[in-house]
């Protein structure tokens, strides 16, 4: 025993003191960590909140820029299609406009546009989309506004070509308004809603336009 202690005495002493100190060190370390976290919670919270707010603001700006970019891109596509339409139909005199007001009635389908007689628009002019689809006709005219009655309005009557056979029919109210009929076939109109118009050809009802 004495020989062992003489050879390893210091190491044994250090080991024992380490064993005795370890729990105390753990307690002190935990206490220091706790105080450190409390300090961080109290004094770094404000800086974290400020950073969060700054990042939110940057994100909102980035999202707004993305939306503006998408809107500009869509408008660009519409204008490109309109330009293509102008090039295909050079005999058309076109005027672009915006829809400013829709009619509130359940018994008509009409809207008001932002251009009028000062822009060269006249009563009876057709209104089309950038794809060349007929929307309606000018039925009322002011100097800086005009009212467009759409094709599904009850007071509207327009001629149209039906399907691929070249047959022409009138979307009229009575068969005596038919102007021309050349071939047989089924009309291909589709839509939805509570209003519809009978499509006549050769005096015979061939379907409905909704």
């Amino acid at each position: 025993m004495k020989e062992y202690l003489r050879k390893n005495g210091i190491r044994v002493g250090m080991n024992v003191s380490g064993i005795l100190k370890a729990p105390i060190q753990k307690v002190l370390s935990s206490a220091v960590n706790w105080f450190d976290s409390m300090y961080g919670y109290l004094y770094e919270y404000d800086s974290l909140m400020a950073e969060n707010e700054s990042l939110r603001s940057q994100l909102a700006d980035a999202q707004k820029s993305a939306r503006d970019g998408i809107e500009a891109s869509e408008e660009n596509n519409r204008l490109r299609k309109l330009l293509d339409l102008r090039e295909k139909h050079t005999d058309y005199v076109m005027e672009s406009c915006k829809v400013v007001l829709w009619s509130s009635s359940n018994w008509s389908s009409a809207f008001t546009i932002s251009k009028g007689s000062t822009s060269g628009i006249e009563l009876g002019d057709a209104v089309i989309t950038e794809y060349g689809a007929v929307v309606g006709q000018i039925t009322e005219l002011g100097s800086t506004w005009a009212t467009v009655s759409t094709v599904i309005d009850v007071d509207m009557s327009v001629g149209a070509f039906v399907g691929a056979t070249g047959r022409r029919a009138d979307r009229g109210r009575r068969p005596d308004r038919i102007r021309h009929c050349r071939a047989a076939g089924q009309p291909r109109f589709a839509g939805a809603g509570l209003r519809y118009k009978e499509l006549y050809c050769c005096g015979v009802s061939r379907g409905r336009i909704f």
Partner: peptide, 23 residues
């Protein structure tokens, strides 16, 4: 009254009564 005004320029349809009832 709105239905009668519409009827003056269009053919009769039972959908008109539906619109009257719904409105």
């Amino acid at each position: 009254m709105q239905m009668l005004k519409t009827l003056a320029g269009d053919a009769w349809s039972t959908d008109m009564l539906v619109v009257v009832a719904l409105q």
